[in-house]
Amino acid sequence: MRLVTVAHGTRLPAGNEVARSVTASAGARLGMPAVAAFVELASPLLSSVLSSPEPAVVVPLLLSTGYHVREDLAAVAGRALGPDALLAQAQVGRLGAAGARPGSPLVMVVAGSRDPLAGRDLALARDLLADAWGGPVRLATLGGLGDRPADVVRPGDAVSPYLLAEGFFATRCRAESLAAGASVVAEVLGPHPSIVDLVVARAQEQLAARRSA
């Protein structure tokens, strides 16, 4: 048995390295071989990895329900990473490292989706972050349904990108949030220990379900 994670993929090599780092750490924790795969824009593609006959537990490195989770990955992978309290913990850690004060005005910026189920997940992720942050959190989206950072971020706000890795959306989040007056824009989630914990937990869920089937 091996661990296969699947991320969206980006043309920015550093962004793809986040998936590989998280996957390697989770595989070591689980005591199994591990490989990071991608939906597009990077290699190896998931279809190529799964062409091997070796059995695998597949964990999406995607933060909410959406097209990829419901369509591309539905037959082979478990549920999305988010929403989850461990993601909120990682966000709070990144905000603290950036100098944001707990409980201060905060905006969570997400990539966004037109899928109503994704909207449900993102609202719950916002609420989990508010609980961990100790104050209200407003939500802005870079695409799909919802309000844009220019309409949500106010001067002096802190901003938490709900993004796993650097890439197109992270660059837009930083630029649009700062243009709207944000005082702090935290780093993306990256290979935070809580992300590794969550990937391990998702894999263990699938392994337990297989044993009980």
Rank of each mutant, 00 (worst) to 15 (best):
L3M: 06
V6A: 03
H8R: 00
G9V: 06
T10H: 09
R11E: 15
P13R: 01
G15Q: 05
G15K: 00
G15P: 03
E17C: 04
A24F: 03
L30P: 11
G31Q: 11
G31C: 10
A34Y: 02
V35I: 15
A36N: 06
A37K: 01
F38C: 01
A42W: 08
S43W: 15
L45C: 06
L45D: 13
L46N: 02
S47H: 07
S48R: 10
L50M: 05
S52D: 15
P60V: 08
L61A: 12
L61C: 11
L62V: 11
L62C: 11
L63R: 01
Y67R: 02
E71Y: 13
L73E: 14
L73K: 01
A74P: 08
A74E: 14
V76W: 02
G78Y: 05
R79G: 08
L86S: 14
Q91W: 10
G96Q: 12
A98I: 12
P102M: 11
L106Y: 08
L106K: 00
V110G: 02
R114L: 03
L117P: 00
G119P: 08
R120K: 00
D121G: 05
L122E: 09
A125S: 13
A125V: 07
A125Q: 12
R126L: 07
L128P: 00
L128W: 11
R138F: 06
A140R: 01
T141D: 14
T141C: 13
L145D: 15
R148W: 13
P149R: 00
V152G: 04
V152S: 03
P155M: 08
G156S: 12
F169V: 10
F169E: 13
E176N: 05
S177Y: 09
L178Y: 09
A179G: 08
A180G: 07
A182D: 14
L189C: 06
G190V: 03
D197W: 04
V199E: 15
A203F: 06
Q206R: 01
R211W: 12
S212R: 09
A213T: 11
